[in-house]
């Protein structure tokens, strides 16, 4: 009797000891993960921080590392993001509206939904190959800003569709009922009530999609974006470079000095990504505070 309670007691102790070990391990893992990422970002700042100056933003790329800048790259990134944003909003939100509000429950709709899930998990470089075959060679658009914008908006389409659908779905049904009761058609209800009410959710999705598009490198390399450009694009059909490609180019050179440039460009890119993400989070928090259905 004594023996059995004793062994029970020690086994409970042992189980709690195991549990304690697990707790410590999981928290250490979390800490370790955060520290590793902090160290990585710290290295970026240590190597590239000095290179960040006004000149760095106003100079074109150059063969001399200390005179090279990211003017063409950041202007190109701005252009590409603008085109991507317009195309993504127009197409992505429309698709979300159809799937959420108009689509009948049949096999075709099911196919589209499955297909969007599938697209979201497709490697980005395959979108680059599609663009190379279709936009660059078949449609003869060349390695232009337009091609880049179209490629990236295809790439982030699933993100926007899923986010916009969720935003539309989360609206209370009474909103629609009230509008219908006043004699509005489905389209009027959409334009005057559902879309304005879901706007913050839709915008969050669009900004998150852009924060993904801004760092994409592989599909743009595939369509043949240039790495050395000494002019600013004037029209949609001009060739271009973007920040991630400039970063990749500097990184693949052996000289240390160019690595410092790469780090500085990386800092700018990282800042833009964090900024977009931060804005999305702020919109989400603000929307949650303002609207109480």
């Amino acid at each position: 009797m004594n023996l059995s309670t004793n062994s029970l007691g020690s086994s409970v102790k042992f189980r709690h000891f195991l549990s304690f070990i697990f707790k410590i391990l999981s928290l250490l893992g979390l800490l370790l993960g955060l520290i590793v990422l902090l160290v990585l970002i710290g290295d970026l700042i240590r190597r590239g921080g000095d290179r960040l100056s006004i000149d760095f933003f106003t100079n074109f790329a150059s063969r001399k590392a200390d005179r090279a800048g990211i003017l063409a790259a950041w202007v190109g990134t701005l252009w590409v993001m603008l085109i991507t944003a317009v195309l993504t909003i127009v197409v992505g939100v429309s698709a979300a509206i159809y799937l959420e509000e108009y689509a009948p429950k049949n096999r075709a709709t099911r196919l589209i939904e499955l297909n969007i899930l599938n697209l979201a998990a497709m490697p980005s470089i395959l979108y680059g190959l599609l663009a190379l075959g279709l936009f660059v060679h078949q449609m003869k658009l060349g390695s232009s800003l337009l091609t880049a914008g179209m490629t990236l908006s295809l790439l982030v389409l699933p993100v926007v569709i899923v986010a916009s659908r969720e935003a539309l779905r989360s609206l209370p049904f009474t909103l629609k009922e009230a509008s219908y009761a006043l004699g509005a058609t489905q389209f009027q209800t959409l334009v005057y009530h559902q879309i304005p009410a879901a706007l913050s959710g839709i915008m969050t999705g669009v900004i998150l999609a852009l924060s993904r598009a801004i760092g994409e490198t592989a599909p743009l390399i595939t369509i043949g974006a240039l790495t050395y450009i000494a002019f600013l694009p004037q029209s949609l059909m001009d060739s271009f470079t973007v920040l991630p490609i400039q970063l990749f180019n500097w990184l693949s050179r052996p000289q240390e000095e160019f690595h410092a440039n790469a780090a500085a460009a990386g800092l700018v890119l990282l800042f833009l990504t964090f900024l977009l993400n931060g804005v999305a989070i702020l919109i989400r928090i603000k929307a949650r505070k303002n609207i109480k259905w």
Partner: peptide
Amino acid sequence: ILAGIPSVIFGY
């Protein structure tokens, strides 16, 4: 936000 760091920076 960390999940959204561009992959080219991880290349660095």
